[in-house]
Design a protein around this nucleic acid. Structure first.
Length: 703
RNA sequence: GCGCCCGUAGCUCAGCGGAUAGAGCGCUUGCCUCCGGAGCAAGAGGCCGCAGGUUCGAGUCCUGCCGGGCGUACCA
């Protein structure tokens, strides 16, 4: 018989829907026997049956209820309600057992029994030489929570971070450093990681300058009708400027037809820089003399405003004359720089090591702030060579093959799949340099072989789900069976209210900025709410509440949902947010403090808990039920890899505590109610603290 | 084209096949002589994207469609 909790306040017990299922069978059989269903369509007879089901279910439930009640099973009440059999417990007795259990177990309350399977959670994969941003923040929050929840569910867990300390991004950054900024690093070592991230962003802007310019021109051609209409006028202007020629004809022709401009088809180096000021003049004119937008049949609506288009032009304009001519040479220099890495040029390796250290120091600080600690630090640089060897072996085995000049694995073909499923994965660049896949093949094997794990989880955003399936499948094809136990936990992206985050647009919220803003706000609020705290205490609470809110915002959305990160919203500590839960915890602490009751003391009378009436108050029951639910929520959250479930749990628990708090005085109540309620407060405090801890959120005693 | 994900209140989101679909934000109105007002109470606000199907019972499972996002051979 299937049981579930009774979904109404004021009762505590189990409900069974068995009579509802039974009733339809009974009714169907009766109607068939009397011939009432003859000649009716399936739908009609179903309707007839369903009409009779509710009353029959209630009849049956009443009969069952009487039987059970007669059996004297120690239940408080047995009732039949709308076809359900509801069995209520003796709440005082169940409450006493529960509260005693929670207080005895303390910080261990909610934890499951030990399990044998060792799980490695790989999360937090920032790249050195780049900034730690809001996307990494979601990853680390989810990773920390997932790991803690799995540990609480009973698994031995190993936390692993995988640092991208080598790759094209590092080469680009170091090229830019050597070429333009050598020796300009900040004197303060703590500021160097962030500075390096800015150098990377600059290298990206320099190397992609031509692409960005052409992208803008293409955008104008596509959606700025006024601009396209003006091209004829621009042509005349150019004629007067004596820049006539094949290139101009090509350029304007492509733009008139909204086609992409291919850089290699431009013969003269300076045609775009010459054209550029005219584009700006036109865009400025469009901003100043704006006409209302008129939709045209068959022409897609513009995705940008004239102001935005002008802003993009203005962002590129200052560098045009200096950068445009140099881009091809720069790209060559970057290639040469990559070669220095490949041949392990001594001077270059030393530079790499030094700058890498700047970023790592930053990451260690950020991980500490976010409560992420790792049993293992993996680095991309450490698996490059093992990866290359694996590629070589796969080529020899015939699993990998050279296609279009580079080693790939045609996975579907190897599996004999007709329909396109795993597709093809390149596993090494044609120039012999390593790809992400080269390194992940080696790393995944390493996890199982060197670290003795039974299951390996990748906490990485959902865009890489095909990629991770490919990695696991390739390893299986290579005869590495454990790869089947490698699993991707793909969570959705972080976006901004104004759209996608892209380093190209330069709109990536940097973690340090977000954290600073949140701490400033938290300090303001503490100053206002609790000015008497010592300044050390204020600073500690600001950190607990500020960082806690940030984490909560990242965890309070399911992993299948895109997080729209709104700094304003993150700075609001009202409502469904960490401080609501933390505040409930602080108030519970304060009540216990006033009572002068330690938990050991409360434990003394927990066994004889008596709420002072036959049945505890509705809000007391609600709270007891919530406290009781933690162990089950931990298991479900772990099984589904969904920290959200625990986030919802602590919020619900805090809410029930508030209901209780407003309805039931604790300290002024007569005994034995006072002691019972005090013990309930202590158990609630413990459940709140334990739940928050699993999310990696601190539970302040005062705030 | 194929694959994965999302679509629930004005907005952001919960909702373990079950009883009356819930929170927060925003809006309206109340509540500190009482364990802390980062709170509480009340009100307004819903073709749970659409159409079929499975089931005694569907926001929840299945199929199709519509809308949006992401992925899909040398980025990571």
């Amino acid at each position: 018989m299937e049981l579930r909790a009774i979904p109404f306040a004021g009762t505590w017990g189990a409900a069974s829907s068995v009579c509802r299922a039974l009733a339809s069978e009974v009714v169907l059989r009766e109607l068939e026997a009397t011939g009432a269903l003859e000649g009716l369509s399936k739908k009609e007879s179903k309707k007839k049956v369903n009409e009779a089901v509710p009353t029959r279910a209630q009849d049956l439930a009443e009969q069952v209820a009487v039987r059970i009640a007669a059996g004297q099973n120690g239940f408080a009440r047995v009732e039949a309600v709308s076809g359900y059999v509801n069995i209520s417990f003796d709440a005082n007795a169940v409450a006493a057992r529960l509260v005693g259990e929670v207080l005895r177990q303390g910080v261990a309350y909610g934890r499951g029994g030990p399990r044998g399977e060792v799980v490695m959670v790989e999360h937090s994969q920032p790249n050195t030489h780049k900034a730690f941003h809001v996307g990494h923040l979601r990853n680390t929050c989810l990773g920390v929570a997932t790991s803690r929840i799995l540990a609480a569910a009973g698994y031995p867990v190993k936390d692993a971070t995988y640092i991208g300390d080598i790759g094209m991004h590092v080469i680009k950054c170091l090229w830019c450093y050597e070429r333009f900024h050598r020796g300009e690093e900040p004197a303060d070592p703590a500021a160097r990681g962030r500075w390096l991230g800015e150098i990377y962003a600059e290298s990206d802007a320099r190397l992609n300058f031509r692409k960005d310019v052409l992208d803008l021109l293409h955008l104008l051609a596509r959606e700025d009708q006024v601009f396209v209409a003006a091209i004829d006028r621009l042509l005349k202007y150019l004629w007067r400027m004596n820049t006539e020629g094949e290139d101009i004809a090509y350029l304007l022709g492509r733009m008139t037809h909204a086609q992409e401009i291919k850089e290699d088809l431009l013969r003269e180096e300076d045609v775009i820089p010459k054209f550029w000021p005219i584009v700006g003049a036109q865009l400025r004119d469009e901003v100043e003399n704006q006409k209302p937008y008129v939709p045209v049949e068959g022409v897609p609506e513009p995705t940008t405003t004239p102001e935005e288009r002008l802003a993009r032009w203005e962002a590129l304009a200052p560098q045009m004359d200096e950068w445009w001519p140099q881009v091809p040479a720069w790209r060559e220099e970057v290639k040469e720089t990559f070669q220095r890495w490949e041949r392990q040029d001594e001077e270059f390796v030393a530079l790499w090591q030094e700058t890498r250290g700047w970023s790592l120091a930053d990451f260690e600080r950020i991980f500490a702030e976010l409560g992420a600690r790792f049993d293992v630090w993996f680095f991309e640089s450490q698996v490059e060579e093992p990866g290359r060897r694996m590629v070589q072996e796969m080529l020899e085995q015939g699993l990998a093959e050279i296609s279009d000049g580079l080693p790939v694995v045609k996975i579907d073909a190897k599996l004999g799949l007709e329909t396109e499923t795993y597709r093809t994965l390149p596993i090494l660049r044609s120039d012999g340099t390593t790809l992400y896949s080269t390194k992940d093949l080696a790393l995944t094997k390493l996890k199982f072989e060197e670290y003795g794990v039974d299951r390996a989880l990748w906490v990485v955003d959902v865009r890489q789900s095909l990629y991770f399936q490919q990695i696991a499948k390739i390893l299986e094809l290579a005869g590495f069976d454990q790869a089947a136990q490698a699993q991707h936990i793909g969570y959705e992206m972080v976006r901004l209210p104004e759209g996608v985050i892209s380093s190209r647009k330069g709109n990536v919220p940097i973690y340090d900025d977000i954290r600073d803003a949140v701490l400033v706000r938290a300090r303001e609020i503490i100053e206002e709410k609790n000015p008497d705290l010592s300044s050390e205490a204020k600073e500690q609470v600001a950190r607990q509440v500020g960082i806690g809110s940030l984490k909560y915002a990242m965890l309070a959305r399911d992993i299948t949902k895109v997080v729209v990160f709104d700094l304003e919203e993150a700075l609001s500590f009202d409502g469904h947010a960490a401080p609501y839960v933390q505040y409930a915890h602080a108030r519970a602490c304060r009540i216990l403090e006033h009572a002068g009751a330690t938990e050991e003391h409360l434990l003394g009378f927990a066994d004889g808990l008596d709420f002072g009436s036959e049945q505890p108050e509705a809000t007391e029951l609600g709270l007891l039920q919530a406290v009781a639910a933690l162990p089950e929520e931990v298991q479900r959250s772990a099984a589904e890899y969904r920290p959200l479930l625990l986030t919802n749990y602590v919020y619900e628990l805090a809410k029930r505590f508030n209901d209780f708090y407003h309805a039931c005085p604790v300290l002024q109540s007569p005994e034995p109610t006072r002691s019972a309620r005090l013990a309930l407060v202590a158990a609630t405090r413990q459940a709140l603290a334990n739940g928050l801890d699993l999310l990696g959120i601190e539970a302040p005693a005062v705030m």
